[in-house]
Design a binder for these strands. Structure first.
Lengths: 333, 333
DNA sequence: CAAATTTTCGCACACGTGTGCACCCTTCAT
DNA sequence: ATGAAGGGTGCACACGTGTGCGAAAATTTG
């Protein structure tokens, strides 16, 4: 059997009330008594029962985390960031996967709320604004990662996609490219639109035309990037550089280009987005706009904990991505 | 405020006892009463409080999962398998990362136990047999993934590393290779030894010599594989094929080989282990011995649930890997 | 119609921890 | 010596759900 405060009370010859107070270092209990009880608790190997505490105090010390898929390396790093903060502050992390199904995401969030988590972090939500009424009904603070929404219980941490798209495209322009394509993502939603916006803005500023046939869509994964690149390779004239929605897309694009016998660079330059480890696996290594992924997770968790513990916190945080120059870009050949 | 059975009792004009029984479909309550109470519960939007249930019934419906790092793609797939099963059966998944620190792994397992999880799954444990006394003291069933141990509360699911190593090496021999190297892992522990054992066995059977200078060690990650391959490239004669401890190591080896100007194949053949998605990102795509990773997670979760729900279950399951032929191997050139 | 039986429900307590308030025992002042 | 003041501790209840057992109501039986 597990040791409870009643067992300690019996051993110490006091009531469980006194034990409870002694262990919480209450001023009401005489110091010697406190010390004696602590010693007995130690000797008996007492571990407080968090379930009972939660029932009593209405706090489970647990954060719910909702993610679409873990097989997407973007999310894993975010979750690691969350977990590190949570672990350091004594919170547990209850993980649920939605598999990109909005309906499932909804039911998962409700399930987490029913499980009495203190707060929820949702990474890469697929749910739009119709989401909000539910969140408010739950009365649980929620932090959205890379999905901006507004509402009384809703907070967010995101990277600036417009800026990132602009950064990538400017970089290619700076290398001397004038024929720059964009491979987007069917499933990218708002973030795809924003990166595309940054791309257009950079083109416009440089006085470069926006060619519709150079804007194609993948699916945010390797296969989609590959297929999209094959379509780009058939255009005439061909772009000399490609900005890809994310690194997986870029890796697919690179595969297709290499298979077509192109040298990357100089025949083609490819830049990705995210800053995944995986970008260093390929040859040439992928140049990319890195999102501070772990930071996203960390900040989301810290924000949530601040809110839960009643400290002030900003409601929305926007982070900037940074360019990582590796090998997949160069001047047009 | 949250709706409790007391609220329902008040609305229905019965005691909370009756409500509790009605909702659990007890035979003691008259069918009409049951239906009436259910209707009221429905109307009020009642959700049972799992914390209170856990306190009363000693079950939290939560599984603890311990993993070294999520950034290792091997684990993510395993965790996904676990989560899918858990979600389908109404269990939550409490995730903790140990970051390859044995001491942390220990404390995490104890923390999970303190948090009253019903069972624990440990993926890729770094703790050896001195682990066992603690596990027994906790009296919580534990399933180890890819780490075989024996004890009253200890179960395991693993892939057959000896067989996998043998399979990979036989495949290379079958292609005509007679100079086959092995890049192991410093941190691989038992699994590294077993894969190496399979390698030696295949060499012995084929009458090939085991050359010490062709057995080097990486760290199970890309960088280590790269460095190890550079060392191999300096040997004379050079191996014509390399079996790598895992896919990340193989990706590193491939990078080094390509950088040295080798064609893979025919100048060099490389085979990995794990069957990661990442193996398809590189050019040429990696041939590998695939572990049924999601299956590992699934089986571990199913095993644990069987045990928890009192159904019989095998204590140890050993799965076989399968060869996936892609592009990185061919006859020696 | 009364007694025995069955059905239906509520009382009281349990699970482990926390807390408002009353009570008891010192201690000190009068 | 008596009263007040104050510190130290325990009683009783709360949190939400589940359950053994007894009591009341409904039904069957003699």
């Amino acid at each position: 059997m597990r040791v409870t405060i009643k067992d300690i009370a019996r051993a110490a010859g006091v009531s469980h009330t006194t034990v409870s107070r002694a262990l919480r270092d209450s001023e009401e209990i005489r110091p010697e008594t406190r010390a004696r009880i602590r010693a007995i608790a130690e000797a008996l190997g007492y571990r407080p029962n968090p379930v009972a505490r939660a029932l009593q105090g209405r706090r489970t010390q647990t954060l719910g985390v909702v993610v679409t898929r873990l097989s997407d390396p973007f999310h894993t790093e975010v979750v690691q960031g969350i977990e590190m903060v949570a672990q350091a502050r004594g919170y547990g992390v209850l993980l649920s996967l939605s598999h990109e199904d909005p309906e499932k995401e909804r039911s998962i969030v409700e399930l987490l709320a029913a499980k009495q988590v203190d707060g929820i972090i949702v990474a890469a939500s697929r749910l739009g604004s119709r989401y909000l009424p539910m969140l408010e009904a739950l009365q649980i603070p929620i932090v959205l990662i890379n999905s901006h929404q507004t509402g009384p219980y809703v907070y967010s941490v995101a990277t600036d996609n417009v800026h990132g798209g602009y950064l990538a495209t400017r970089y290619l322009i700076g290398l001397g490219h004038r024929a720059i394509a964009y491979i987007g993502s069917r499933r990218g939603g708002r973030s795809n639109q924003d990166r595309y916006r940054g791309y257009r803005q950079a083109l416009r500023e440089a006085g470069l035309p926006l060619r519709p046939e150079w804007v194609v869509k993948g699916d945010g994964r390797v296969e989609g990037g590959e297929a999209a690149m094959r379509r780009l390779l058939e255009t005439d004239p061909r772009p000399t550089a490609v900005f890809c929605y994310n690194d997986l897309t870029a890796i697919g694009a690179l595969k297709a280009a290499l298979r077509a016998g192109l040298r990357v660079p100089p025949d083609l330059s490819i830049i990705g987005f995210d800053g995944l480890e995986e970008g260093t696996y390929v040859t040439p290594m992928l140049t990319t706009v890195a999102q501070p992924r772990r930071q996203l997770g960390r900040l989301a968790a810290e924000m949530l904990l601040e809110i839960l513990e009643g400290r002030p916190s900003p409601k929305h945080i926007l982070l900037q991505g940074t360019l990582i120059e590796r090998e997949s870009c160069g001047p047009p050949g």
